[in-house]
Design a protein around this nucleic acid. Structure first.
Lengths: 343, 343
DNA sequence: ATATAAATTTTACGCGCGTAAATTTTTTTT
DNA sequence: AAAAAAAATTTACGCGCGTAAAATTTATAT
């Protein structure tokens, strides 16, 4: 690597003995130049370590290589994991992903979309807040910027949705719990922020009825994204209240379950499927911490890889299609049951 | 709001009846124009909803308003929280923060620094991987871009460091454990990725010796960022092995402790400070989940707010000083002991 | 009212690159 | 070998804005 600092493409073109427009073409798509030319450019690149000015590039390109990734709450490790997965795929495909978190706040989500607009991204992968989202503003955004929704669906918004099949989650957990003991009671927040919660409840009711069972739904109070604490408080109310119709609790999601298990522990209630346990608790999501709860949490896992992979692929083909699909598609991946100690 | 779409600053200047350079000045600093002019601009802004093209701005400005935030591992909710805190402060100060996660990978950390360079940020807040970091490359970066390190220190690198005082953590936890029971054994990874771990061990040894106690350090194997699993496996070895010199374990950090507690639960060992408990476990960090472990984790909390706040303030003053300080400063905030059930 | 300072406008240039059209060179085809 | 096709080069313009210098207007001080 030469010590020479290169100021711009002009200079680099001169030093490598190739015209600037050809260099420009190379950076847009290395395959668009003759192999021999490409070699020469890449040799020069090794010697001089030049990188095009990203602002100048994006000012003139019809379409940038930027991709926005928006998740609702980054302090939830679930979204940390999926963001990482998606980020890497974008980089590998030659895009420049930028990660944003709405931090559970409606206004911040809108602000993010606003600043995303000015980044002129080729496309956006958006996991919306859900119920808290400003639907019409998100709709406006999706009409301007090619957007694929993931994790949380908003009916009719965005060019496509990719997520997990909530029925698959609940179906497997209910099946297992029925087979191995008492029919489960469903435990959830009264006003869930996330639309998946509603689908899971509906799936629970449908599944129970199809098995000839009476569904029981426990709705607990609580707002915001502090699900563990909400689950814990809700569990206290349930545990200290009147008798439950079953010894088996199926939580809407793992974070609630983590709080539920903490409450059980505090009350001295043994949870699990072994001799001497008073309750069973199962849940959905396979949260990164669910393996380390006490007892470890029986749950149902997202197909992370497929959801992330297909979200990204869908966005890429959306970009190639010019930002619009003929019809909005919804892709749901089945979940995978994970047997641990809690149920 | 008018329906007219405005293409550029020229057009907006014409419509608002003010010259373009003045408009430009306004966007650079609204206070740099006469109050009456500012009013007129802001009126026009309400009517026409114009936003300067961010790429054109940054191409020509000597210094952008971009700030890079780099954390080592975003799937750890600790970093999710602190990133959120820092992000908000940057936005409030009129900067445009961009968040990056190294995802625990040395190469990715370097890639991030590379792409940060091309963003020409006014400054960067960097929480390095630690031991895994490529010191010389980080050093190079810090010499080019005004950088404040936080959370993890690398001696002599960056213009300043802001973090928590590891001695304060350990001092408080050891004090408490000594007062309330047996002297603690220190539990940590053999090759900790994070430099704080080394400081905590040193603090433990120093503190114990100053109290006339013999320090005992348990070093467990494990690589990477899956601390919970490493802690769990290490705990099994400890619990199944020969007798411990104490019934009290002090973990280097909460994520190890979470794994430790999971292992204890699996072995049927009751942890806590009440009657009938066989062990006590305490730790450091006040991880967002430490309240929900079983039993809830006695730990020592970072002063999140101060660390985030002072990191950002330090970066701002660094930027105003032209990117260099006379001397490198290290600011350490004391921690706060949090008594819960595990010890 | 006059002098002085401050703010604004005018004018003009440049940032680093994308991109289009016309021309030349190189490669492939027959 | 000549003709056709493909790739590279030359030339030239523009993107949207920052910014500097000089001229003009407006505000403040005496």
């Amino acid at each position: 690597m030469d010590g020479t600092k290169i100021k711009n493409m002009e200079e680099f073109a001169a030093l490598s003995g190739i015209s600037r427009p050809t260099i420009s073409k190379y950076f847009n798509d290395p395959d668009s130049v003759r192999p021999k030319t490409r070699e020469r450019i890449e040799e020069a690149l090794e010697r001089y370590d030049y990188r095009p000015n990203i602002f100048a590039i994006n000012q003139n390109r019809k379409m940038t290589k930027n991709i926005g990734i928006v998740v609702p709450y980054l302090a939830d490790p679930f979204f940390g994991e999926i963001a990482r997965n998606i980020e890497q795929r974008c980089i590998d495909a030659g895009y420049r992903p930028t990660l944003f978190s709405s931090h559970g706040e409606r206004d911040l989500e809108i602000d993010i979309l606003d600043s995303l607009r000015s980044l002129k991204p080729a496309g956006v992968l958006l996991a919306p807040l859900g119920r808290a989202s400003d639907r019409s503003k998100i709709e406006d955004f999706c009409n301007e910027v090619p957007t694929v929704l993931f994790d949380s669906n908003i009916d009719g918004v965005g060019e496509a949705f990719v997520g997990s099949d909530n029925f698959s989650f609940v179906s497997q957990s209910v099946d297992y719990l029925m087979d191995s003991g008492e029919p489960p009671v469903f435990f959830e927040m009264r006003n869930p922020a996330n639309p998946n919660a509603n689908k899971r409840r509906a799936a629970y009711i449908q599944k129970m009825e199809s098995m000839g069972q009476t569904p029981h739904v426990l709705k607990i109070e609580g707002e915001g994204w502090a699900f563990e604490e909400i689950g814990r408080q809700g569990a206290f109310e349930v545990l200290d209240g009147k008798a439950l119709p079953s010894d088996t609790i199926l939580c809407s999601n793992d974070r609630l379950a983590i709080g539920f298990l903490a409450a059980c522990y505090e009350r001295g209630i043994r949870v699990g499927r072994t001799e001497g346990c008073a309750m069973r608790v199962a849940s959905h999501d396979d949260h990164p911490f669910s393996k380390f709860t006490c007892p470890s949490l029986t749950t149902v896992a997202h197909d992370y890889d497929s959801v992330a992979g297909h979200s990204v692929e869908t966005l890429f083909s959306l970009i190639e299609s010019g930002g619009k699909f003929r019809a909005r598609t919804e892709t749901l991946y089945p979940a995978r049951f994970i047997l641990r100690a809690s149920a």
